[in-house]
């Protein structure tokens, strides 16, 4: 079982090795981080959230706030259903 997991991890990690310019690195040598590593466009990163004037971040914030308020409303709804069951003695399913 362990062997299978290691094999899977290795397969998954192969593409990330290939991103580094391997032919420039010799065994035992340190890879130096340069300015190019921060600015290059050749490596795919999670850039989407920073594009277009970062509007996606604002969308994310509003969605989180709205979902939070919705969650709160659902909780109130559930609590009311419960107390309705106690007061009116009927089965409520909302």
């Amino acid at each position: 079982m362990k062997k299978i997991i290691f094999a899977l991890l290795f397969i998954v990690s192969v593409p990330s090795f290939s991103q580094v310019n391997l032919d420039k690195i010799k065994a035992g040598e340190k890879y130096e981080i340069t300015e190019n590593d921060y600015t290059n466009k050749s490596v795919d990163m999670a850039d989407m959230m920073r594009e277009n004037g970062k509007i996606y971040v604002v969308v994310g914030v509003i969605v989180i706030i709205f979902l939070g308020i919705t969650f709160y409303a659902i909780r109130i709804d559930r609590k009311l259903s419960k107390i309705e069951g106690e007061v009116f003695g009927e089965k409520v399913n909302s």
Partner: peptide
């Protein structure tokens, strides 16, 4: 008053409008 579907619809529609309203 005991149905849930329209509450779900309300949330989904507002989520849709937040996302498309800001991005389209």
């Amino acid at each position: 008053m005991k149905k849930v579907w329209w509450k779900v619809l309300a949330v989904l529609l507002i989520l849709y409008t937040i996302i498309t309203g800001l991005l389209l």
